[in-house]
Design a protein around this nucleic acid. Structure first.
Lengths: 189, 189
DNA sequence: CTGGTGTGTCAACAAGTGTTGGCCTACAGT
DNA sequence: ACTGTAGGCCAACACTTGTTGACACACCAG
């Protein structure tokens, strides 16, 4: 499973392509982002993208490798879980502009079925288990995870994709104060 | 301001184009939906679309003419507002498949700035005033409208665009029971 | 019947897409 | 120093896109 690190001379180019791809996919979504635009941003020829990543689809897959890095659920007291989760997502979205894979997926999932499937996978692998740790019954855990996802993705969509002015205007503290209790209720009530 | 109803012979074709356009835009979003696909669905030539609607952009504008038809805020008691709003939106999305303009806009807004602007306009014209009727201070009304929009659009996105299985599985009654109180709190607390 | 206008089809344009193959160039191992 | 190979660029492919203009048919007023 290890890559034996061949340390090719082209690793710099590969990284530049991936960086540019993340930026373009995040800004435009899967369809609107073109191989040519990505190549131009990385300052190389479009054919290099194909050489190193095979196809636009595989490049996209490489660009969005999401790990929500959810905080350890045991580390926070149960009554603070809602606020902790909201705070965590806010930090992921706002303080870490280099890794906007989740927003890229969100933007692309609206029109690209592959991106949607990927987002569903992340939900199933990372949100559902979190809910399951709190309520063992899988059907109630699924429902709770669903409610949490609906609220959090709605926040991400209106704040970072749609950029609804009043949602953008909310301070992080206000977001945590208003939406934290909602998540708390969805998770534990 | 009236159209003097010339009652042209081509009105049927115009309507067929608009119907097909709504279906394609709703299913694929602005970019992925092509004039040719719309014309094929309407069983006419692509050039007719241009003749009657001028351009793809103008056709899109004609296809998404959204009126949320929000219920009269005075008609329901204040403590039932949340449930009433959630019920209303559920009906708009699920029982009226002919008019999915809002979902079309939601899907397209992720990658199309014009659609996003249009959605922001609907929000400002229809959600904000509703919040303002409950709390006169415009800044708190804006915040409340923002929270409502984030929750409701999140529900629409996860249920109808992303189709997250646990969100789809929620019965309408469960949605109202779980999310109604959230909206209620966002609006009035 | 005749002319004109509105309705519709066909073919094509120009631009942009993902993708491919050929051709240089420069570095690595011998 | 020589040579094979990997890195990189150029030009082109096949295709799709929105859009346009020329042409054919049908209807209706005179």
């Amino acid at each position: 499973m290890n890559d034996a690190q061949p340390l090719r001379r082209s690793d710099g180019t590969r990284a530049a392509i991936l960086r540019a791809a993340r930026a373009r996919f995040a800004a435009d979504g899967y369809q609107k982002a073109t191989i040519r635009a990505i190549a131009a941003a990385a300052d190389i020829d479009p054919s290099m993208v194909m050489r190193y990543y095979g196809s636009k689809e595989r490049l996209f897959a490489a660009a969005v490798d999401v790990d929500l890095r959810l905080p350890d659920i045991g580390a926070v007291p149960k009554e603070r879980l809602g606020a902790a989760l909201v705070t965590h997502f806010l930090h992921r979205w706002e303080d870490d502009p280099s890794d906007d894979a989740l927003l890229t997926l969100l933007r692309s999932a609206a029109t690209d079925e592959a991106a949607a499937e990927r987002l569903r996978g992340i939900f199933a692998a990372q949100i559902v288990p979190l809910a399951q740790a709190l309520s063992p019954d899988p059907s109630v855990a699924g429902e709770r995870a669903a409610l949490v996802a609906a609220q959090m993705l709605g926040l991400a969509f209106t704040r970072h994709i749609l950029r609804l002015p009043p949602v953008v205007a909310l301070s992080p503290e206000a977001v945590v104060a208003r939406i934290g209790p909602t998540i708390q209720r969805y998770l534990t009530e």
